[in-house]
Design a protein around this nucleic acid. Sequence first.
DNA 1: CGGTTATATGCCAGTCAAGGAATATATCGC
DNA 2: GCGATATATTCCTTGACTGGCATATAACCG
Lengths: 118, 118
Amino acid sequence: MSDASLWTALADPHRRVIVGLLLERPRPVGEIVDACGLSQPSTSKHLRVLRDAGLVRVRQDAQRRVYALDPAPIAELDAWLAPYRKLWNSSLDALGHRLDETAPGEPPDHTQAPTSKD
Amino acid sequence: MSDASLWTALADPHRRVIVGLLLERPRPVGEIVDACGLSQPSTSKHLRVLRDAGLVRVRQDAQRRVYALDPAPIAELDAWLAPYRKLWNSSLDALGHRLDETAPGEPPDHTQAPTSKD
DNA sequence: CGGTTATATGCCAGTCAAGGAATATATCGC
DNA sequence: GCGATATATTCCTTGACTGGCATATAACCG
C-alpha cells in the first residue's frame, strides 16, 4: 500500500516544495536542485522517496532525468479527506453566519477559515 | 504556521487512525487507547501531537478527556491540494502530453519502467 | 577512447520521533 | 482525608530520516 509512503513522502517540507515545483511543469533534477536549495545528492534522495511513493515519474532525456508529477497519489489524499470535507462545510457554514453578522452588506465569500491558531 | 505540524501529525498511521476514530464521533482517551491498540501513554502523546497541530480539541468530562475533531486544519490540507486537483481532472492523458512537450521528437511512449533500479 | 555533464548511491554523523515503563496530576467516590 | 480511576508527562532507548561528502554510473561530445 503506497498510502503510508504517500503521507511520509509529503511530510517533508522540501519534498512538498519539489512537488509544488513539479506541479507547474516537469523539471530535470538540476532545476529542482537549484530551486529548493539543497545539494544534488539530497535532492536526488528526496526524488527517490517521491518516486517510491508514486508521486513522481521520471523520463530520461539524454543525461537528464526529467521528473513529472503523478497526480494519482494526490488523488488518494483527496479521497482520504473526502469524509472530512463535509465536516468543515458545516463548520464554515456556521462561521459564515458569524461573518455575515459582523459584515452586513458584504457577500459571505469565505473561501478560507481564518483559523489563526497561535 | 501549523502547516508543518499538520503534515507531520498526519504522517503517522496511528494518528490517522485516531483522526478517523474522531471523525465518527468524539471519544474519551480510553476508547482511543482500546481502539488503536497502543499503550495509554503513547496514545496520550499522539493526542498531544494532534492537539498541537490543531487537529483535535479536548473537553473535560469528570476525569475523562473527550477528544473531538477540529476540521479546520484538514481544510488547510484540502486547500493545499486544491491546485493539484485540476491535474487529475485533466486525466493522465494530459500528463503524458506534458511529458511529450519536454521532449519534442520523442514518441509519446510513456511506458515508464517501475521503480526497479538497484 | 577520454573527458565532461547529469544523476544516483554509499557512507557517516546529527537529529528527531516513537514506544514503553514508571510516575505525576486531577477528579471522582466513600 | 484515602483509594481508585483516567489521563498527562518524564526518562530512556531504539530506530528512522536527513544532509553532506565522496564516489559510482550513465550518457553525451570530441
